[in-house]
């Protein structure tokens, strides 16, 4: 069913990505591939993995941007995957019903057995979140690790997306963005989390937290501005003075 859910979904599961913390290590990219090549969307095909034109299906990719110059210069590592939009055109353009948005939690999925590989959904997604599997001839995409988050064989701590549990810096958070009191919603409110390309009206569920203002004044760290100057005249006496004179020779 490629019509969007009639009512607002009761839950809006998604990710919050902290651009202040992300160090661009690609651990999330790797663990995403690792989990998903064996999960719901398996396999995430790689074409010519050992050749010169390596290509393959990846649901999460890290871009690195910079902006400004001199003291204003910033480097921002920018992980990007499906944002599980509230009003995604990727779903409504699908002619077959393969693409759908789940009524219960807002996750956007592809029914691979119905997909004809027309690729129209990839044209409709502004963010490049859809990945065509050349080998299977069907569209694949981030499932928000639907096969982890509801997986009763995993313990609670592991019922989170693979990218989130693996992030060594703690830059990725998972939760219900439809509940204003959830930890992720509070984080978004506190830190001014924002949408990507809000002008296109996709209403992404995933939010990005901006880099914090740069701290480049020594006071901010609690250290003194300069160390106290040691005068020639105030040379220590006694044993230390003798050592100092000995070594200064």
């Amino acid at each position: 069913m490629t019509s969007l859910p009639q009512n607002e979904t009761p839950r809006k599961l998604g990710l919050v990505i902290d651009l202040d913390i992300c160090v661009g290590c690609n651990a999330c990219v790797t663990n995403c591939k690792e989990w998903n090549t064996g999960g719901h969307s398996a396999p995430l095909t790689d074409l010519h993995p050992y050749g010169r034109d390596v290509d393959g299906v990846w649901f999460n990719r890290v871009h690195t941007f910079e902006a400004g110059s001199g003291r204003d210069h910033r480097v921002v590592h920018f992980p990007k995957s499906c944002l599980h939009c509230e009003t995604p055109q990727c779903v409504t353009v699908c002619p077959t019903g393969a693409s759908y948005k789940r009524e219960e939690d807002g996750i956007v999925l592809v029914h691979h057995d119905w997909c004809i590989g027309c690729k129209l959904c990839a044209w409709a997604c502004p963010y490049g979140a859809r990945e065509f599997d050349e080998d299977a001839g069907v569209m694949k995409k981030c499932t928000l690790c639907i096969d982890r988050i509801y997986n009763e064989n995993l313990n609670d701590a592991d019922r989170r997306p693979a990218c989130v549990i693996t992030c060594p810096a703690g830059a990725r958070h998972f939760g219900d963005l439809g509940d204003p009191n959830s930890a992720v919603s509070r984080l978004v409110a506190e830190r001014g989390g924002y949408d990507l390309m809000p002008e296109l009206g996709t209403q992404p569920t995933n939010k990005y937290l901006p880099p914090r203002p740069r701290r480049d004044h020594a006071e901010a760290t609690g250290a003194p501005d300069l160390l106290e100057h040691l005068d020639e005249e105030d040379q220590p006496g006694g044993f230390l003075g003798w050592v100092d004179r000995l070594l200064s020779r």
Binding site: A67, G68, E199
Partner: peptide
């Protein structure tokens, strides 16, 4: 707008 990066430049 695509990245939301608000730094100058």
């Amino acid at each position: 707008t695509a990245t939301g990066i608000r730094a100058r430049g």
